[in-house]
Amino acid sequence: MNPDASTIAAGAPIEVDLSPIAEGQDIKVFWRGKPIYISHRTKKQIEEARAVNVASLPDPQSDEARVKSGHDQWLVVIGICTHLGCIPIAHEGSYDGFFCPCHGSVYDTSGRIRQGPAPSNLAVPPYQFVSDTKIQIG
């Protein structure tokens, strides 16, 4: 009952062009049927994400560990709430990050869980920068 060959093949890596995304904007792309948020973070958002005491977080992880160094403005996360799989809404909630409408989990500008029932941070999918304005997810 595991995924069949065609499902696995359809889950191959995809390339996304980042150049049209202005600062402060984000886009949602689908990979393996999952929504992936790619946010072009503002200076303020990055500072907010780095200002917190990592040890005080429910799922401690530094912002540096969740983005690619040298591309700190780009946050790429799987837009699936780690509680029960709803899609959080970007730019909502009290931490300027994501807010899940189903059971009220709140994520910060680094996609880390800050409030609510979700047990862990929004997952970062495997990806790398092909060029400065293009990433490959998968």
């Binding site: 009952m1 995924p3 393996r32």
Partner: peptide, 17 residues
């Protein structure tokens, strides 16, 4: 969960099973 879905998310294989 992957076994239940038959994919990477709820989709056609899930509906079929």
């Amino acid at each position: 969960v992957t076994l239940l879905w038959g994919g990477y998310s709820v989709g056609n294989p899930t509906l079929n099973r």
